[in-house]
């Protein structure tokens, strides 16, 4: 973990509620895709945890949905604004388990953390399949970005207004070596039940600190209590205990 100040270079709407923010500065503290950052926002007491969509040594891309006051303030920030950010939080996805035909499944605002993962897996020459699930056509984002990486992309919409009608589980391919997913908990549960290989799930929880101190985001797992922020947000399928 590192505390740093990054400067916004762009902040644009991808659709009605989803925004893409690009920041510049020292991002070397980010060590893996699937990690998140925790942003101090003026007027808000707690930082806001946002997953890393893409990064390199000196830039960071966040794709976030406006869900409350904090993200609403973020959506109105202009280029040149400097943000106090904690970088390199959480464990991130383990690429070593991918195999030759990894499957990436993202639901809604759970799509962004899979982008850098797809980029890395394609960089390793893997045959990457991606399923992007949304409620409706207007909510879709990043389909072309994943296609540009050379991934085999399928889009599902719950209302059938684009792509395959239904949930992401309707689009599961017959064979894949390992899967990675992020999205709303009902989707994660459905994937847990519908998949046939091992896989990695990225979870979301309301956090206090984001770096393991407050125990605000704990969950029970097969291997004991874990903090989503520090021991997660990525858990392996084999260690998940569904609570609710």
């Amino acid at each position: 973990m590192k505390q740093t100040v990054l400067e916004i270079t762009s902040n644009t709407a991808l659709n009605k509620n989803v925004y893409k923010m690009v920041l510049k500065g020292d991002c070397t503290a980010i060590t893996s895709c699937g990690q998140f950052v925790n942003i101090q926002i003026e007027g808000m007491y707690l930082r806001r945890p946002i997953s890393v969509c893409d990064y390199d040594a000196d830039s960071l891309t966040l794709v976030y949905k406006v869900v409350g006051k904090g993200t609403e303030v973020m959506s109105k920030m202009s280029s040149g604004t400097k943000l106090d950010i904690l970088l390199g939080l959480g464990n991130g996805y383990d690429l070593s388990k991918a195999g030759e035909k990894p499957l990436l499944i993202g639901g809604g605002v759970g799509v962004p953390p899979l982008y850098n993962l797809a980029k890395k897996l394609r960089g390793e020459g893997k045959d990457v399949s991606v399923i992007l699930g949304f409620n409706t056509k207007e909510e879709i984002f990043y389909e072309d970005e994943f296609k540009s990486l050379g991934c085999n992309v399928k889009v599902t919409t719950v209302d059938g207004s684009y792509g395959i009608k239904g949930f992401v589980t309707k689009a599961l391919p017959e064979s894949y070596s390992h899967f990675y997913t992020c999205g709303p908990e009902p989707m994660l549960k459905a994937i847990y039940n519908a998949t046939t290989t091992s896989g990695q799930f990225s979870f979301e929880e309301r956090m206090g600190c984001g770096f393991g101190a407050c125990m605000g985001c704990s969950c029970k797992t097969v291997t004991g209590y874990k903090r989503i922020c520090k021991d997660g947000p990525v858990l392996f399928k084999e260690e998940i205990l569904w609570q609710k």
């Binding site: 007491y45 707690l46 309301r206 956090m207 206090g208 125990m215 605000g216 985001c217």
Partner: peptide, 13 residues
């Protein structure tokens, strides 16, 4: 969980 809530100039745990 949730165990945490944001407040003006503070938080609830």
């Amino acid at each position: 969980t949730p165990r945490i809530a944001e407040c003006t100039s503070g938080m609830i745990n």
